[in-house]
């Protein structure tokens, strides 16, 4: 018997104004509020980001994705990498994303704890993000936040998230450089590392390399990579000891740098960005179509399923729904709520 804690606390929609000028100035509070607006899918924020991006100078952010199993030391790595990048004079934004929090409920986000040493550095911005009930889910919100930070000239954007290949957030869809963290912890063998990971990793970090077994894990990873399809970039395997601070991640930082250089020189960076952009657009279309489809179904529901819902063919119903959404969008004058013709005929 637990206590009655079932109420979901929901705040009013985001209502703070998006202050373009404050954002341009780099005001941290404005940045933080803009990310809230993104999370709330406040439509006012997206033109603002577009506007900011038009005025952007310089190369844009180097977006580094950091992912690995729980307990592999990602936050500590993020902390140490941040220290290195700060020492090099770059501004660093960290998005600590927890895709595992339940969609409807609350979340307990603790990744900041290990990075609080940077809390007072104006050149570091840290934001924790959990799964929440906004349009399109966490992945789209994260990508929009990355784009905002890029527009505001944060040189390094580090997106840290747990797990690979199972979560809502596919890190390879938003990062320039994907770092996958492995550890030589007890029972951790390369076989445990999920299939498909060699394709997404640009750099493997064997963290906690002061523990026994680190060399074995690194060797096995290299063997595995040799077998995988050759591409222009040969995935690097480096060892790190994040707990030792910047010294422990120097090699990892160089590997990340090397990959960034490769992206620029080979032109692959642009190609990758283009692919990601198109995927993002597709993702947005999916998300929006889903919302509209739900709205139509909520309004008209059964009518789409025909006289005998048990015999309704989902593929055909989906086609009808899409046609209906397209018609509504192209003809805003169409009376909402009138059931579509084909179904009436059947």
């Amino acid at each position: 018997m637990g206590t009655q804690l079932g109420t979901v606390l929901v705040r009013s929609p985001y209502h703070g104004p998006v202050e373009l000028e404050a954002l341009r100035r780099g005001d941290i509070r404005a940045v933080a509020r803009a990310i809230s607006a993104i999370e709330s899918a406040d439509p006012g924020i997206f033109p603002a980001i577009a506007e900011l991006r038009r005025g952007r100078a310089g190369d844009g952010s180097h977006v580094v994705g950091l992912t690995g199993a729980p307990g592999s030391g990602k936050s500590t790595l993020a902390d140490a990498l941040t220290a290195i990048w700060r020492a090099a004079g770059r501004r660093v934004a960290v998005l600590a994303v927890d895709p595992n929090s339940p969609f409807t409920g609350g979340a307990l986000l603790g990744d900041r704890v290990r990075m609080q040493g940077h809390a007072l550095d104006p050149g570091v911005f840290i934001r924790s993000m959990g799964a929440r009930g906004h349009l399109g889910g966490l992945a789209l919100a994260t990508r929009a936040a990355v784009r905002l930070l890029d527009a505001l000239g944060w040189e390094m954007v580090l997106v840290e998230t747990v797990g690979v290949g199972q979560s809502e957030l596919e890190i390879c869809e938003l990062a320039d450089t994907v770092v996958v963290v492995a550890t030589p912890a007890a029972g951790d063998s390369v076989q445990v590392i999920k299939a498909g990971i060699t394709e997404i990793a640009d750099v493997f970090a064997v963290n906690k390399a002061d523990l026994p077994g680190a060399d074995r894990v690194a060797r096995e990873l290299r063997d595995m990579l040799r077998l995988s399809a050759a591409s222009e970039w040969r995935t690097l395997v480096v060892k790190s000891v994040a707990a030792q601070g910047p010294e422990g991640v120097a090699e990892l930082a160089s590997a990340i740098e090397a990959h960034h250089g490769h992206l620029r020189e080979s032109g692959e960076g642009e190609a990758r960005a283009r692919r990601q952009l198109l995927e993002e657009v597709v993702g947005l279309v999916e998300a929006r179509a889903a919302v509209e489809a739900r709205e139509v179904l909520a309004r008209e529901g059964e009518a789409f399923l025909g006289p005998d819902p048990e015999l309704a063919q989902p593929e055909l119903v989906a086609d009808l729904l899409l046609a209906r959404i397209a018609a509504t969008r192209s003809n805003m004058g169409a009376a909402p709520g009138s059931p579509p013709g084909p179904l009436r005929r059947s």
Partner: peptide
Amino acid sequence: RDAGVEVIYTG
């Protein structure tokens, strides 16, 4: 958290 709040713990 169980009541639906997004809690950010800073340690």
